[in-house]
Nucleic acid binder design. Sequence first.
DNA 1: CTGAAAGCGCTTACAG
DNA 2: CTGAAAGCGCTTACAG
Lengths: 351, 351
Amino acid sequence: MPSTHAPIRRKVTLIDIAAACDVSRATVSLVLRNSPLVNRHTRERVQAELQRQGYIYNRAAANLRKRTSSSIALVLNDLANPFFAEFAAGVDEEVGAAGFVTLLGSTGESPERQQAVLSSLIEHGPGGIILSPAEGSDVSRVMESLGPQMPVLLFNRELGGDLPESAHWDRLMLDNARGAELATMHLIEQGHRRIAFFGGHAQSSSCQQRRAGFMKAMKRARLKVPRDYLIESAPTRLDAARACDALFASDPAPTAAVCYNDAVALGLMLGLGQRGLQPGRNFALTGFDNIGEAAMVSPSLTTISTAPRERGRQAARLLLARLEHPQERGERTIVPVELIVRDSSCPPLAA
Amino acid sequence: MPSTHAPIRRKVTLIDIAAACDVSRATVSLVLRNSPLVNRHTRERVQAELQRQGYIYNRAAANLRKRTSSSIALVLNDLANPFFAEFAAGVDEEVGAAGFVTLLGSTGESPERQQAVLSSLIEHGPGGIILSPAEGSDVSRVMESLGPQMPVLLFNRELGGDLPESAHWDRLMLDNARGAELATMHLIEQGHRRIAFFGGHAQSSSCQQRRAGFMKAMKRARLKVPRDYLIESAPTRLDAARACDALFASDPAPTAAVCYNDAVALGLMLGLGQRGLQPGRNFALTGFDNIGEAAMVSPSLTTISTAPRERGRQAARLLLARLEHPQERGERTIVPVELIVRDSSCPPLAA
DNA sequence: CTGAAAGCGCTTACAG
DNA sequence: CTGAAAGCGCTTACAG
């Protein structure tokens, strides 16, 4: 009994093309890959037939046979964060240009979800992984999902735990210490003496590095940093706004703050406003990341530029290069950062 | 002569596990998929061995055999646009929850790149595609790359040209007309009479729809819209700032503008500032999208909320549902929009 | 220059 | 409950 459904047209494969042209599958396969072995006449006939039947190359089948991969996995905490969105755009640009496709995964900053996402992605056979680790995740668990052979590029954050010799993971890290140092130096130059470091989770590696840069600049200027000038918050606007009170719990209160990142700085601005203070008039602050809003917000924000899109391109290039030489030692690349001065957020200290 | 390289450990496959457990591949395969057919003892032995050897499921091979797919392609203009970044995050959430993986592609608003991206993605065998089309792209070319069978969900913009009956594409569209109408009504309620529609490419469908909503509200209020109150720009901050002059070329100049989207509104604010005008004091404006910056910028921006993350989830759900019923008619879903009033950007008109 | 055969790592009837 | 065989759509030696 014939089906009443419209016939689902079977996908056209090499066999269909070969049959129509009266050649073997091997010949069609060679045409597809532009092998010079096939003679011109045959090639043209085959190409016309490919076109005519609307042939679509099955790359998964080819990858299976060739034991190759044509994808890169990209695992981020949160794609909606503009910093990571720019980064992802850069990765995808370069990955696409190399003829690969990007597999996306997001962890929402949860080590458990990160495990699940990695385990799922790995089954799709990516050639390598670009991972910006969730806070609190560690090498051994990641290694467990990925196996020791998978090329990995770690971006932005170190992973807890030690990396075995056998794993040749690359790293691309921002110069967090230097960035925070530059921001701190700038506030010092503007005349500030009582400067706080505001926001971020103290246990995260990026926060530790930024705090270290901050302390270095303060120490060099022989400025004291009371313990309560180091204030934690989640790296979000909302939590930063909430944490603003802690800044003024100490006596004397700081006149300026180096913020963990731009989101935190924007949140702090909100918090200051709620206390009746005007950021950029009676309190100075700096950010980190140079997200789009940093230029737009009023007062505009002095910050540290990390050029996330370019970082994405760089990450993709590093990983793609690694695929060619999987056995060479992993490298650690520190990307320089740049101070973006927008002094409406940190004018000279009125004496 | 033995190689001096460290031996690259061959990937472990079903064969390895089967051999170690002295069972057939079929049995291992059944264990992997939790078939109740396998007896408990055998199952446990096999599972232990899978664990021990660090077996990784090759989903591409399984998909090939089963003629199924486990991925969804997501094609956007620009991932770095916060609206699309949120959308992508929502898509990936839902796609991941369904056990699929997201393949990413970006077109940079170029129909040519869109063709290339689609042709590349399709070779990786996605089960369906979520496409926010590049401006100026049309159905026939897209259909050419995708074939008539591929499930497609069109988001945000219509595609030029007619869709053949055979293609059951779904659409998820914002209620652009209604959004612009709401914004316009709000400005009218605030006392404005000379209102411009500012920004966007006039030929894009979303701009046309928003303009239509604008005109509808104006007409209902019996307000005239001079031709030079309809001003085009690229939908970016920079170009909008540049186009600001056009707004004041007409006489009398408008006192308010309904902007194509938030990016344009933010650009217009810059442009106004450069002319010595204060947005929210001597000029009123509204945006569209409710991106994060809309709340942060000063003055904060009255705008239209489209909840892009939720739209992403919705898009993914629609497409995943379509995979189950590929032959049903395509549906057109219009998502409601909501006016977000932040009156610092559009205070009552001073008489 | 072209074809026949084997194989990538799985799953699916079909036997037993 | 388990195994032997075939096959998904490609590519790769190997012959000729």
